[in-house]
C-alpha cells in the first residue's frame, strides 16, 4: 500500500485528525463527542498513517509509547477523582471552578474534564497497543 495519493493525503490528515480528536474531547461535555470517540479518532489517525507509511513510521511519529499513553491516562483519571478528598468530600465527587478569561468569558472547568482526558489517553493507547503489534506481524 504505497499509493502516493494516500501518502500525501495522510501526511496532512494525521495532524488534522489528531486536532479533530482533541476537538471532540473538548466539546464532548456539551455536544456529542467525548473521551471515547476522541481517543478512537486519534488512534484511527495513526492507524491510517501506518497503512500509508508502515508501522515503524507510526512508532516514530507517536509522541509517546502506547503503554505510556495508557499509564498516564489511567493515572490522570484516577488522580482527577481524588481532588474532592482535599475539599473534604467523598472520593469521585466532581469539583467545578469558574475561570474568567478576559475577552472570552467564563470558562467552566471541572475534574470530570480531566477524567475525560484520562479516558481519551487510555482509549487511544489501548487501541494503538492492540493494533500496532498485530499489524507488525
Amino acid at each position: 500500500m504505497t499509493s502516493l495519493i494516500l501518502r500525501t493525503a495522510t501526511r496532512f490528515l494525521l495532524p488534522l485528525l489528531v486536532l479533530f480528536s482533541l476537538f471532540l474531547l473538548v466539546r464532548g461535555h456539551h455536544e456529542p463527542g467525548g473521551g471515547f470517540s476522541g481517543g478512537l479518532v486519534a488512534a484511527a489517525a495513526f492507524v491510517l498513517y501506518g497503512l500509508a507509511f508502515g508501522i515503524a513510521e507510526v512508532r516514530k511519529a507517536l509522541p509517546l509509547d502506547p503503554r505510556t499513553l495508557i499509564g498516564s491516562g489511567l493515572l490522570i483519571a484516577v488522580t482527577s477523582t481524588t481532588f474532592s478528598l482535599f475539599a473534604g468530600q467523598p472520593l469521585m465527587t466532581s469539583l467545578w471552578w469558574k475561570v474568567a478569561i478576559p475577552g472570552f468569558g467564563d470558562l467552566d472547568l471541572g475534574t470530570p474534564l480531566l477524567f475525560d482526558l484520562g479516558v481519551y489517553l487510555a482509549v487511544a493507547g489501548v487501541t494503538l497497543l492492540i493494533i500496532l503489534p498485530l499489524a507488525e506481524e
Partner: peptide
C-alpha cells in the same frame, strides 16, 4: 450538577 449538556458524556465521566 454535572455542568454539561451532553447527558451521555456527563453520565460517563461524572
Amino acid at each position: 450538577r454535572g455542568h454539561g449538556r451532553n447527558i451521555v458524556n456527563v453520565i460517563l465521566v461524572d
